[in-house]
C-alpha cells in the first residue's frame, strides 16, 4: 500500500484507540485528581463493563442496536454501583492512604477477575456492533462503527466536561479536588463526593469498554492494557488535569497507530514506551500539569 493511504489508515486506527483511551483514562484521572489515589482496579472496572455489555446484549437479543444501547445504560450503572460498594466498604476505611489503596485495589482486581472467571468463564465473547456497515475507501475498507466510536467518545467527553463545569455536583467535585478541608468547612459532603467520584470514574471505564467491545471482545483478562495505558495517559497529561488527560490520550493513541507505520511492530512498542518515559523525565509534572506532583 502507498504511504498516503497507509498513513491515513494508521491515523484512523490511532484515533479510535485514542477515543476509547480518553474516556477510560478520564475516569482514572477524576479519581486520581479528586481523591489522590491510584485505583489499580480501574482496568477491572473496564473489563466488568465489557462483560456486562455482553450479558445485556445477549439477554436482549432483539436487534444488536437495542442490546448495545441498553448496555450503554446498564453497564456503567452496574459498574458504578460496584464501585460505590467498594469505596464505602474498603477505601473510605483506609482514609484514602495512597499506599494502602494500591494494595486494596490490587485485592479488588483479583476479586473481580476471579468472580468474572467463575461466572462468565474464560472465553472471549463478541458483542455485535449496533450497525454493521463497512465503508469502502479506494485503498481499503473501514468499519463505520469505529468512526462512530470516535464520535461517541467526543460526545461523552463533552458531557463530562459539562457535568463538571455546569452542575452543582461538578462544582463540589472541583472544590473537593482543590482543597478537601475547606470544602468540608463549606458543608460539602466530602465522603459522598468521594463515593460519587469513584463511581463516576468506574462508570467511565465501563463506558469505554461498552464502546470498544463490538470491536474487541469481552474477556476476563482484558483489563490489563487499559489500566496500563490509562495510567500512563493520566500521568503524562498531568496529575489532576482533565484537559491534559484528554490531550495525552490523543497523543498516545495516535502515536501508537502511526509509529507502527515506520518501525517493526515490537520495536515500535519499545520506542513508544521509552518515549513516554522520557517525556516524564523531561517534564515530571506531565505535559499539562501545572506543578510538580
Amino acid at each position: 500500500m502507498d504511504f498516503g493511504p497507509y498513513f491515513l489508515l494508521a491515523s484512523l486506527e490511532g484515533a479510535v484507540g485514542a477515543a476509547v483511551l480518553a474516556v477510560t483514562a478520564l475516569g482514572l484521572s477524576l479519581v486520581f485528581g479528586v481523591m489522590r489515589i491510584v485505583n489499580v482496579a480501574h482496568g477491572e472496572f473496564f473489563m466488568l463493563g465489557a462483560v456486562i455489555a455482553w450479558w445485556v446484549a445477549s439477554l436482549i437479543g432483539i436487534h444488536p442496536a437495542v442490546g448495545f444501547l441498553a448496555a450503554l445504560v446498564v453497564s456503567p450503572l452496574v459498574v458504578g454501583s460496584v464501585a460505590i460498594l467498594a469505596e464505602r466498604t474498603v477505601l473510605s476505611r483506609l482514609h484514602y492512604d495512597p499506599e494502602a489503596t494500591i494494595v486494596a485495589t490490587i485485592g479488588m482486581l483479583y476479586v473481580i477477575q476471579q468472580a468474572v472467571l467463575m461466572t462468565y468463564g474464560p472465553e472471549a465473547r463478541p458483542v455485535q456492533p449496533p450497525f454493521d456497515f463497512r465503508i469502502q475507501l479506494p485503498w481499503f475498507g473501514y468499519s463505520a462503527y469505529k468512526l462512530f466510536v470516535i464520535l461517541a467518545a467526543v460526545v461523552l467527553l463533552l458531557a463530562v466536561w459539562w457535568g463538571l463545569t455546569r452542575t452543582r455536583l461538578g462544582l463540589m467535585m472541583r472544590a473537593t479536588q482543590i482543597d478537601r478541608e475547606t470544602a468540608r468547612a463549606f458543608a460539602i459532603p466530602v465522603d459522598r463526593v468521594y463515593a460519587g467520584v469513584f463511581a463516576v470514574g468506574a462508570a467511565l471505564a465501563a463506558l469505554g469498554a461498552v464502546l470498544v467491545v463490538p470491536v474487541q471482545q469481552a474477556h476476563y483478562l482484558m483489563g490489563h492494557d487499559p489500566l496500563l495505558l490509562s495510567f500512563i495517559t493520566v500521568i503524562i497529561g498531568g496529575l489532576g488535569s482533565l484537559r491534559g488527560t484528554v490531550l495525552a490520550a490523543v497523543i498516545i493513541g495516535m502515536s501508537d497507530g502511526i509509529i507502527s507505520v515506520f518501525f517493526s511492530p515490537t520495536l515500535a512498542k519499545i520506542i513508544a514506551t521509552l518515549a513516554v518515559a522520557m517525556v516524564l523525565v523531561a517534564r515530571p509534572q506531565g505535559l499539562f500539569g501545572e506543578r510538580a506532583p
Binding site: 491510584v38 496500563l228 495510567f231 500512563i232 500521568i235 503524562i236 496529575l239 514506551t273 521509552l274 513516554v276 518515559a277 516524564l280 523525565v281 515530571p284 509534572q285 506531565g286 510538580a292 506532583p293
Partner: peptide, 10 residues
C-alpha cells in the same frame, strides 16, 4: 512520586 512510578513501569 507518581512520575517515578510510571517511568519505572515504562
Amino acid at each position: 512520586g507518581v512520575s517515578f512510578m510510571i517511568v519505572t513501569l515504562m
